[in-house]
Structure formats: structure tokens, C-alpha cells
């Protein structure tokens, strides 16, 4: 199987989560194909893959763009499980979508059972400042509480689009390096420790 010369190439799996219409697909398409789609077409689930150069290293990124509306949250469990990092998106023009991030965060933590899972809180539609409903302070407050970075993006102007994906990939990468080191040394201990912590919470 010499088909993939970069078989050893790193692959980072990113999941887009957030309420419907906040711009998950718009961010993904902007990142993938440099295009902005004006029309809103609700997503069920879409998978993308791209080769990028991350800090000089060629890596692959898998993006799973998910549905904002889902009748049964449990349906998400499976793909949350498969994700290595999450872009949790809300629209700064819609408070509900900001509130919904709380639920997404909880579900991810539950499924991944990992407090330190790579995770970015993303406030999208930053080009629509005049319609802003969620203040910067409010969003930053929540991200600090969770201990994750907060970035505001615009899928329309491409502002910070690359940044959120690359920042997340860096986190995923460093997590993988950590895990590797851990599994080489006192890996089992560490895993246990994490689990315990979770249970305490």
C-alpha cells in the first residue's frame, strides 16, 4: 500500500459544533475553498479533508461539519467521540446561540471524558458588529471560566478563519505529543488521574 506516500502524515480531526445558522458551514467552506456562501442551507453532516502546512509540517485536517438542529442530542455522541478537537461556534448576533454553547460544552466533556480536550470558543459573524447581541466581555468571561481561548471570526470577511483552525490544530498536536509521552512513561496513571478528576467534577 504505497498509495499514500504520506501515510505517516499527521491527521487532526476537528468537529464543528454550535446552534443552527451560526456559520459552521460558512467557516468550514471559507477555510476549505476560500468561498463564502450567502444562502443558508441547514447541514445534516458533512466531512472535509485538507492538506495544510502547520508550522512547516504538512498535516491533514479532517473537518466534520455537523447539524445545529438535532432532535436527539444523543445522536451527536458518536461524532463527538470521534473528534480530537472542537470549534464551538455561536453567532455574536444571537444570544440563544451563545447560551447553547454551554450545553455543547457539557456534552463534549461527557462524551470525551476529558476536561482538557482541545476546544475553541468561536464568536462568528464579527462583521456584523452593529447587530451584536453577545458582548466581548460576556464571551471572554465564559471562555475563561472554561479555560479555553475565545476568538471572534467572520466567515464572510475571512477574519480569523485560518486562525481558529490552526490554533485548534496546534492544541490537538500538542495534546497528542503529551499523550504519547504519557503513554510511554506513566501513561496508565495519567489516564486514571484524568478519569478521577472527571468523576469528582
Amino acid at each position: 500500500m504505497s498509495k499514500k506516500p504520506g501515510a505517516a502524515q499527521a491527521l487532526h480531526k476537528v468537529i464543528m459544533v454550535g446552534s443552527g445558522g451560526v456559520g459552521k458551514s460558512a467557516l468550514t467552506l471559507q477555510f476549505m475553498y476560500d468561498e463564502f456562501v450567502q444562502d443558508y442551507e441547514p447541514t445534516k453532516a458533512d466531512s472535509y479533508r485538507k492538506k495544510v502546512v502547520l508550522d512547516g509540517e504538512e498535516v491533514q485536517i479532517d473537518i466534520l461539519d455537523t447539524a445545529g438542529q438535532e432532535d436527539y442530542a444523543a445522536i451527536r455522541d458518536n461524532y463527538f467521540r470521534s473528534g480530537e478537537g472542537f470549534l464551538c461556534v455561536f453567532s455574536i448576533t444571537e444570544d440563544d446561540s451563545f447560551q447553547a454553547t454551554q450545553e455543547f460544552r457539557e456534552q463534549i466533556l461527557r462524551v470525551k471524558n476529558d476536561e482538557n480536550i482541545p476546544f475553541l470558543l468561536v464568536g462568528n459573524k464579527s462583521d456584523l458588529q452593529e447587530k451584536r447581541k453577545v458582548s466581548l466581555a460576556e464571551a471572554q468571561g465564559r471562555s475563561q471560566q472554561w479555560g479555553v481561548p475565545y476568538v471572534e471570526t467572520s466567515a464572510k470577511t475571512r477574519e480569523n478563519v485560518d486562525k481558529v483552525f490552526f490554533d485548534l490544530m496546534r492544541e490537538i498536536r500538542s495534546r497528542k505529543i503529551e499523550d504519547k509521552a504519557a503513554s510511554n512513561g506513566r501513561g496508565k496513571d495519567r489516564a486514571k488521574r484524568k478519569k478521577k478528576k472527571c468523576i469528582i467534577l
Binding site: K44, A45, S47, R49, L64, T66, N78, Y79, S82
Partner: peptide, 10 residues
């Protein structure tokens, strides 16, 4: 390579 498992399963 095509990574459609999650899509299909959903």
C-alpha cells in the same frame, strides 16, 4: 480517506 463514517452513521 473519505472519512464519511460519522456522516453515514448520523
Amino acid at each position: 480517506e473519505e472519512n464519511l463514517l460519522q456522516v453515514v452513521w448520523r
